[in-house]
Design a protein around this nucleic acid. Structure first.
Length: 103
DNA sequence: TTAGTGACAGGCA
DNA sequence: CTGCCTGCCACTA
């Protein structure tokens, strides 16, 4: 596991309940401004082993970006359970729920 | 070693 | 606001 992967895992683990981060934001906090695609790879690869709150990572449009319809639905439900609202187009208001920090 | 792939993002019409 | 196109970069075959 390389350093970037470790950083990405740490960032994801630090997302508080009830907040979300976009793939690009996770990458930026991890020190790789253009590593959004690596974030998705880390989620696929290490979610189970590292016990990551994978459902708190969404894309820049505020939508769930997973392809598998089953997991897509699971993620939406998990977020709703944490108090996050979706609009009529299945989008989250990032102005409200995005986890902002100053590292 | 090269080409293809993906749970992305930002710019543009 | 929405959909399409291009750039990205680690991983895989």
């Amino acid at each position: 596991m390389n350093q970037l992967t470790k950083n990405i895992i740490t960032v994801i683990k630090n997302i508080p309940k009830g907040s979300v981060l976009t793939y690009g934001t996770v990458a930026a906090y991890a020190g790789a401004p253009r590593g959004a695609r690596q974030v998705s790879w880390v989620l696929k690869t290490y979610t189970e082993r590292e016990n990551l709150p994978w459902h708190r990572v969404i894309n820049s449009k505020g939508q769930i970006s997973i392809k598998d319809p089953v997991y897509h639905q699971i993620q939406k439900q998990l977020l709703i359970d944490e108090g996050i609202d979706f609009d009529d187009k299945d989008r989250i208001n990032l102005d409200i729920y995005l986890f902002l920090t100053n590292i």
